[in-house]
Amino acid sequence: MGFARFIGSRLLQGLFVVFGAMVVSFLIANLTGNPSDVIGGSLLSPEQRAQIAHQLGYDRPLPERLGDYLAGAFRGDFGMSYQTSETALSVVLRALPNTALLITCALACALALAVPVAILSVLRRGTGVDRSMRSTMMLVGALPDFWIALLLVLVFSVNLDLLPAIGFQSASSLIMPTVALALPLTPALVRLLRGALLDVVGQDFVTSLRARGFSDRSIVTHQAFKNASVPFVTLLAMQVGWLLGGTIIVEVVFAWPGVGSALNNAVQNRDIAVVQAAVVVIATGYVLVNLLADVYASLIDPRIRTAVTT
């Protein structure tokens, strides 16, 4: 069946991406030549540094190290975090559920805002309503997420004392990080969905639905929405990394115990193995999300199910 082949080809593509992320994460660590210089800093004598480099295997030729690194990475072995003496991967994976929770809430929140806005602006396209909504979205989209985060803290923690400013103690801790992430995300979702809907609304079958007695509103919220959801979900999944890159900073602002905070902590402490593991884990997450989007698209659109490739 075409479906299995389609998913198979996307899986292969995803594998390439994960492989690429491993290479990139290796290159990051080796940008300056020898990570032991970075770890040790200037505090150690040249002999001590050479010893560390030898221990970590950095005195061997680059291709050999890359091969070893990749072999380890594919087994999930990125070495130990020198801060916690856990494996680097487990440091990242422990933080992952919190980040996943935050991102899911932010996406749900942004979608709940973006879907009605996009639908309304398509129904009222070309009118003042459409224009004013587009301007509002443009304004919201220009707000830096970490600034929104601090403003929220200022209002709801400092002044009103309603919500906890940092950490993850209760469900209420989730509110501010979610809003800080969802707000700048919403305009991007509106733009994607509005574009997808406008593409669909211009098609012949929409005219023929009108001819069969469906109102514009009914078409846009049902048949056209379903049609538009396929490119929308695909594009959203494709850009999810770019759109949610700010998660790292927002996590840091709220001291949210997620991958972003773990990454920031690792960077500030030069814990290279954890940084590498985080890069690969996030790229893997990206591939999985895109795979989910592909499955969705092929469930909704019969043409993808029967298409031979791509």
Binding site: A211, R212, G213, N227, I300, D301, R303
Partner: peptide, 20 residues
Amino acid sequence: LGRDATVVLQNPTTSLDPLS
């Protein structure tokens, strides 16, 4: 529309909802 009057469009393949 859809009751007393209906329309058949020029291009049959594009005038049907591809997902239905």
